[in-house]
Amino acid sequence: MEQFLQQLINGISLGSIYALIALGYTMVYGVIKLINFAHGDVYMLGAYIGYFCITNLNLGFFPSLLISMLVCALLGATIEKIAYKPLRNASRIAVLITAIGVSLFLEYGTMFFVKPDPRSYPPLTGFMAKTFRVGNLLITSQQILIIIITVVLMIALQLIVKRTRIGKAMRAVSLDGDAAQLMGISVDRTISFTFILGSALAGAAGILVGIYYNSINPLMGTMPGLKAFVAAVFGGIGIIPGAMIGGYFIGLVEVMVSGYGNSMYRDAVVFAILIIILIVKPSGLLGKETREKV
């Protein structure tokens, strides 16, 4: 039981990271039906920006988190403007190939500047270095921070999407782009805003992973990116709560498989889950089966 609770805490921490990344995938897919394969690399850049803020600028964790989110937001909007916007009327395969190109560009471009070797986040101090013991459970302050920050960001996201004008525009565009345009909603601005939101969350995930696992490298975005994509599909791509649930689910599965089974099978199990969902319920956990309308 104790071991289970311990794995639960570890799983939720890891799942938070996946959920934050998955939200970006799902929101972007919702508004332009694009699987933005460069999204995992925005997360990687978030980790690096956080690293430079903390080590080179000697900033604290929270200012670094904010800067990381902000820079990633700008970066996301720029990627959209330069790489995807010119392809608005292109075939989906062309856009997909472009996304893969952007991903490789970011990975190897980053490698050029920061070298391929992993870097370590500096050792944490003060509160951040503490570990709490509840019975026999160990909870690190990084885990507490990850869980709380993720929840705060998710609540903020929900408020933006549900309550604000631009959030409602986002939902409208993802439901029916043409009808949204008939309301006077600018699809281009809405798409930019979606990239801004999603990339900011990825930036947060990047710096959180930095303080959690310490080690970062230019290719670190690939695997979590893929798993977050699986999480988004699991929950129902395009559906925001689906990405949250999917992220936590994948995180938990991964940790449980490593904890009780064999960590070698961790990734295999995650992708097996993807295959099973695609067979059993292609639209995901919260997705509706869409029938072609007349």
Binding site: R165, K168, R171, A172, D178, A179, M183, I185
Partner: peptide, 26 residues
């Protein structure tokens, strides 16, 4: 210039009030 499109095209998973609100978007 405003349009009621063919097939209504209401925003299905938004409330009636939210739909009206979007009508006044600008």
């Amino acid at each position: 210039i405003s349009q009621v499109p063919e097939g209504r095209r209401v925003f299905s998973t938004m409330t009636v009030l939210e739909n009206l609100e979007l009508g006044a978007y600008l």
